[in-house]
Nucleic acid binder design. Structure first.
Length: 155
DNA sequence: GTGTAGCCCAGGG
DNA sequence: CCCTGGGCTACAC
C-alpha cells in the first residue's frame, strides 16, 4: 500500500539516519544534524525501517530491491554498478569506472550526486590511496565501513 | 613524501 | 558554447 503524501523514516544510530519516501520509492536520505519527526503510514515504510534497523546493527541487509531516484542517466549507470557491491566488500573508483566505461573522476561526480546513501552504498567505493571522499562526511563513511567491518585499509 | 597532467561529467555563465 | 571544479590516478621527481 502506498500513500499520496510523503513519509519520513528515522533510524537511530551514531548519527540519525533519515529517509523521505513517496509513492513506494525513496526520494532522499541523509544523516540528520537536527531532530526530525517521523511519519510512517505504509507497509513499505515500516518494512524499510525494520531493514534499516537491522543494517545499522551490523547485519548484512540487501537494499537492491528498493526503488530509488537517480539524478541523471549517467549517474544511474554508475549507481547501478555500485548497488551490486555486496555488504562488507569495497571497490575502487577506477574499478567502477572500468565497468561503466568512464573515468574515476566522473565516478566521483556521480557518487556525490547520490540522493540515497546506505540504500545505494556509495560508501563501499574507496580510493586506491585511502578511504576517499563522502558526501555525508568522511567520519560517517569510516563508521559505515567499520560497521560492515571489512575495510582493512587505513581508516 | 609532493607536483602535475590527464580524466569526463555536471553546473554555471 | 566555453569555462571550472571535483568523493581520482598514474607517474615523475
Amino acid at each position: 500500500m502506498q500513500t499520496r503524501t510523503s513519509e519520513t523514516i528515522v533510524v537511530e544510530w551514531n548519527w540519525d539516519f533519515v529517509a523521505r519516501l513517496k509513492d513506494g520509492m525513496v526520494l532522499k536520505a541523509c544523516f540528520a544534524r537536527e531532530c526530525v519527526e517521523e511519519s510512517i503510514e505504509s507497509e513499505f515504510a515500516e518494512n524499510l525501517k525494520r531493514r534499516l534497523e537491522r543494517y545499522f546493527k551490523g547485519r548484512a541487509v540487501d537494499f537492491t530491491d528498493v526503488n530509488v531516484l537517480y539524478p541523471t542517466p549517467f549517474s544511474e549507470r554508475v549507481l547501478r554498478v555500485v548497488r551490486s557491491i555486496p555488504f562488507g566488500l569495497v571497490e575502487s573508483y577506477s574499478s567502477i569506472a572500468e565497468k561503466v566505461g568512464t573515468s574515476p573522476r566522473a565516478v566521483g561526480v556521480a557518487l556525490r550526486s547520490n540522493l540515497v546513501p546506505v540504500i545505494v552504498p556509495c560508501h563501499r567505493v574507496v580510493s586506491k590511496a585511502g578511504i576517499g571522499g563522502y558526501s555525508q562526511g568522511e567520519s560517517i563513511k569510516k563508521a559505515l565501513l567499520e560497521l560492515e567491518s571489512k575495510f582493512h585499509g587505513k581508516l
